[in-house]
């Protein structure tokens, strides 16, 4: 019989304690302030923003003049204009995951999208906006579900997720733990929902106060 080193038990206990403490700290990470109105865009021209719009529609939020808006090609300049005309948005949701069809139709590349979104995030920071990185397309919007060699989804995630204040993901798209790792590494709170429909109560908690 193989002998177990007396210190290994202590080490194992330490590991269990450390991992429990770590999970606890992630769960306890305070959610950022999420206020209306909300601007929704994508990083990769996927239909994700329209799908989020469907969720917001279901929330039936009361806010004048508009609780939320979807702008496909939202730019840093747009944020300045919103502020200048007195309609500053408080929360920015960027849907991660790319659509080659969407980008192809618009005649742009993922690099163009990353440039646009990076500038947008910088500007949003200056306006004190809360940034939510959302991944709601499941494995279809991950490299595993894309054409072999197409890594645009992952580039989109790299550009948005680590710089977000909150991650909102659908479980299937996090099957490999990619978002959990980012959340833990960067200390970003994460909401993980089983299905898109389950985001309705989550968003209700965030925005229907």
């Amino acid at each position: 019989m193989k002998r177990i080193h007396p210190l290994s038990g202590v080490f194992l206990s330490f590991l269990i304690f450390a991992s429990a403490s770590f999970s606890f700290s992630i769960e306890q990470t305070e959610l950022p302030k999420t206020d209306l109105p909300v601007l929704i865009t994508s990083c990769g021209q996927s239909p994700g923003p329209v799908r989020l719009k469907a969720i917001f529609k279901k929330l039936d939020l009361e806010y004048e003049p508009k609780a939320y808006d979807v702008v496909e090609f939202l730019t840093a300049k747009d944020l300045k204009i919103y502020k200048d005309v007195g309609t500053p948005f408080k929360t920015l949701i960027i849907v991660m995951g790319a659509s080659l069809k969407g980008m192809g139709a618009a005649g742009i590349s993922i690099e163009d999208e990353i440039d646009r979104v990076s500038e947008l995030m910088k500007e949003a920071r200056q306006h004190g906006m809360t940034i939510i990185g959302a991944h709601i397309g499941g494995m279809k919007r991950r490299a595993q579900g894309a054409t072999v060699g197409d890594n645009t989804d992952e580039l989109s995630i790299d550009a948005v997720a680590p710089k977000s204040d909150l991650l909102v993901v659908i479980k299937e798209g996090n099957a490999d733990g990619r978002f959990t790792i980012i959340s833990q590494d960067k200390g970003i709170p994460m909401i993980e929902a089983e299905k898109l429909l389950d985001l309705i109560p989550e968003f209700e908690k965030l925005f229907k106060k």
Binding site: P47, V50, R51, K53, A54, I55, K57, K195, L196, L197, D198
Partner: peptide, 15 residues
């Protein structure tokens, strides 16, 4: 029809 399709997709996938 994108709003309608998004809604249909969400409702079907959930139920």
């Amino acid at each position: 029809g994108e709003d309608l399709a998004a809604l249909v997709s969400m409702m079907i996938s959930g139920s």
